[in-house]
Design a protein around this nucleic acid. Structure first.
Lengths: 156, 156
DNA sequence: CCAAACTGGTTTCATTTGTAACCATCTAAA
DNA sequence: TTTAGATGGTTACAAATGAAACCAGTTTGG
């Protein structure tokens, strides 16, 4: 019996990871070069910009980050005075996070750049290809156990 | 003028990354739990299993890894006696890497598991969805500047 | 021939990451 | 109540990572 061979370049986990890594690396220029943010910091900013006030747990769920990443990102954004924490009245474990004016300014500056980046990425595709990307990703997303898209230890 | 908002969950770089991360994390069980391999080590094994003898540089190109990752992964697999290095006759900087019998055994053990993993992942999709995933990923791959899919500092 | 530039690969150092332990608070059940 | 367990969040520690410096060896152009 023949030795079974795996073609790495056609292996789904590998292709996905490599693509995500390449895209993410290129995109990171926008938040890293301009403001020296890490990815978790960018996601935190994006989450708060999008939703207004959130708790750290909610942030982790929305942006699929481990709670330690959230904790560190929040600490850094707080240090920059891009966000403030306010204690919850009823439950003193919880803190509500909100962007400051400076945080909002950074967010407003970055959103158009992010959108332009995505637009340019997709502009290289035909309409059919664009549709395939969209529906392919959506299909994979719904196919994976939801829990896996969140961060493991968040859910349990 | 309204504040522009970015919906993170629909943002392509984020979706790709989250998906890749979830899939990769789940897949990593196969090489991590069984053999305590890291992802670079797994990729190195996969590359050598697939192509036979390769140089470290070739490995980095094939599997999109930074050369330091390759170097470390190779060192570890060598420590396990899963591969051996042989010097090149003409160019003494180069070393050719080959799996040992033990390395091959591990490879042969893992390939079917990897294939089963992928099969199960795709089995949850309809034929159309499967096609969309395939063509969507392919489209993105060809659309990104080739260089970006390799590792930056490899190419330059 | 010889120096400059280049290439394959390793190492060092600072940063980022994940796991697990941890503290504080809250909830529920006896 | 009291106490055992959950939950929000932080911290400590070890491992993984990336950038840049580095050490051979090799090639190139004068």
């Amino acid at each position: 019996m023949e030795p079974e061979i795996l073609e790495l370049e056609n292996f789904l986990p590998y292709r996905l990871y490599r693509l995500a890594d390449a895209v993410s690396r290129e995109f990171s220029g926008i938040y890293k070069d301009r403001h020296g943010l890490t990815r978790p910091e960018w996601r935190t900013l994006a989450g708060l910009g999008q939703h207004g006030t959130m708790t750290a747990t909610a942030l982790g769920e929305q942006s699929a980050m481990h709670k330690t990443k959230v904790s560190r990102a929040v600490a850094e954004l707080e240090r920059r005075r891009w966000l403030i924490r306010t204690a919850d009245e009823k439950d003193r474990r919880i803190e509500h996070l909100t962007l400051t004016a400076a945080g909002h300014a950074a967010y407003r500056e970055m959103v158009p750049l992010a959108k332009a980046f995505e637009r340019e990425l997709l502009a290289r595709l035909s309409a059919d290809e664009h549709a395939a990307v969209t529906s392919g990703l959506a299909a994979l997303e719904t196919s994976l156990p939801q829990a896996r898209l969140r961060v493991k230890s968040q859910t349990l």
